[in-house]
C-alpha cells in the first residue's frame, strides 16, 4: 500500500466527517446513563457511575407500552401491506385482464401523494366511523399509503417470476390463492424482505398520522410518546436522552445486524 499524502487526506476527510455524523448519537447514548451534572461537565466521557435508573424511570413512564404499541401497529400494518400488495402485484404482473394498465398506473401514482395533503379528509372519515383514537384507525391508512410503493417493487419482481413454476402449480390443481400465497410469495422472499424492511422502518418512525389519529396515552406509538416527554422532561435531559436511546435502540440494532438488507431495501426506493 503506497502511503501518499492524498490518501491520508482522504482518510482524514472521511474520518472527520463520519465522526461528526456519529457524534450526536454517541452523545445521546453516553449521556443517557449520566447524572445531569456529569452530562454538562464531561459531555464525552464515559459515565463514571452509570445511572441505569434513568432507563428504568423512562421505561416505567410509558416507553414500555409505547414500544408495545409500535410493535403491534407496525407488524400488523406490514403484514397487511405485504399480503394485499403481493396479491395485487401478482395479478397486475401475471394476469392479463382488461383495465390492468389503468389500475397499475392509478395505484402507482398514489405514491406521490404526501399524507399531509389528506390529513383533513382522513381525519373526517376516520372520525365518521369512530376510528379516531384506535389502532385500527392508524393501521388502515398505513396500509393504504404503503400499497403503491410495495406494488411498484413487487410488480417488477413478479414480472420476472419463472412461468414454469406457475404452470406446474396450475396443473397440480392449485387455486390462484394457493398459487400466490403458498408458492409465489415464499419464492419471492428477497423482494418481500425489501418491502417489509422499508415499510417497517417507515411505519416505526411515522409521526404525522399518529399525531392526528391517536390521543390516549395508552395507545401512543413511540414517536408520539416521545413528544410527551419532550414537553414533560424538557429540562430533565438525562431522562429525555434515556427515552430517546430506548426508542432508537431497537431499530439501530436491527439495522446493524441486518445492515445489508436494510441498505438494499431503503436504497431500493431510488430505483
Amino acid at each position: 500500500m503506497r502511503l501518499r499524502l492524498s490518501t491520508v487526506l482522504v482518510y482524514l476527510l472521511v474520518g472527520v466527517y463520519t465522526l461528526l455524523v456519529a457524534l450526536p448519537i454517541v452523545w445521546m447514548f453516553l449521556s443517557s446513563t449520566k447524572t445531569m451534572r456529569e452530562l454538562f461537565t464531561a459531555p464525552f466521557a464515559l459515565p463514571s457511575d452509570p445511572q441505569w435508573s434513568n432507563f428504568i424511570r423512562a421505561w416505567e413512564s410509558g416507553i414500555s407500552h409505547y414500544l408495545a404499541n409500535s410493535l403491534l401497529v407496525t407488524s400488523v400494518s406490514v403484514i397487511l401491506i405485504v399480503l394485499v400488495s403481493a396479491l395485487a402485484a401478482y395479478s397486475l404482473a401475471r394476469i392479463n385482464f382488461p383495465g390492468r394498465v389503468f389500475i397499475y398506473l392509478l395505484l402507482i401514482a398514489g405514491f406521490a401523494i404526501p399524507v399531509h395533503t389528506v390529513l383533513v379528509p382522513l381525519y373526517r372519515t376516520l372520525n365518521g366511523v369512530n376510528l379516531i383514537n384506535t389502532h385500527v384507525g392508524l393501521i388502515l391508512p398505513y396500509v393504504a399509503f404503503g400499497i403503491p410503493f410495495s406494488i411498484l417493487l413487487l410488480y417488477a419482481f413478479f414480472l420476472e417470476f419463472p412461468a414454469e413454476i406457475e404452470d406446474a402449480a396450475r396443473i397440480d390443481g392449485c387455486t390462484i390463492w394457493q398459487l400466490v400465497i403458498q408458492i409465489v410469495m415464499p419464492l419471492s422472499m428477497p423482494a418481500l424482505v425489501s418491502v417489509i424492511i422499508f415499510q417497517a422502518v417507515f411505519l416505526w418512525n411515522e409521526f404525522s398520522l399518529a399525531l392526528i389519529v391517536i390521543r390516549d396515552d395508552a395507545l401512543r406509538t413511540i414517536p408520539l410518546g416521545l413528544t410527551k416527554f419532550q414537553g414533560q422532561w424538557s429540562t430533565n435531559w438525562t431522562l429525555m436522552l434515556a427515552s430517546l436511546s430506548m426508542a432508537t435502540l431497537p431499530v439501530l440494532l436491527l439495522f446493524v445486524i441486518l445492515q445489508r438488507h436494510f441498505i438494499r431495501s431503503l436504497v431500493g426506493f431510488s430505483k
Partner: peptide, 10 residues
C-alpha cells in the same frame, strides 16, 4: 377514571 395528563403546550 382514566387519567390522561398532557404537557401544557400540547
Amino acid at each position: 377514571i382514566v387519567y390522561s395528563p398532557y404537557p401544557n403546550e400540547a
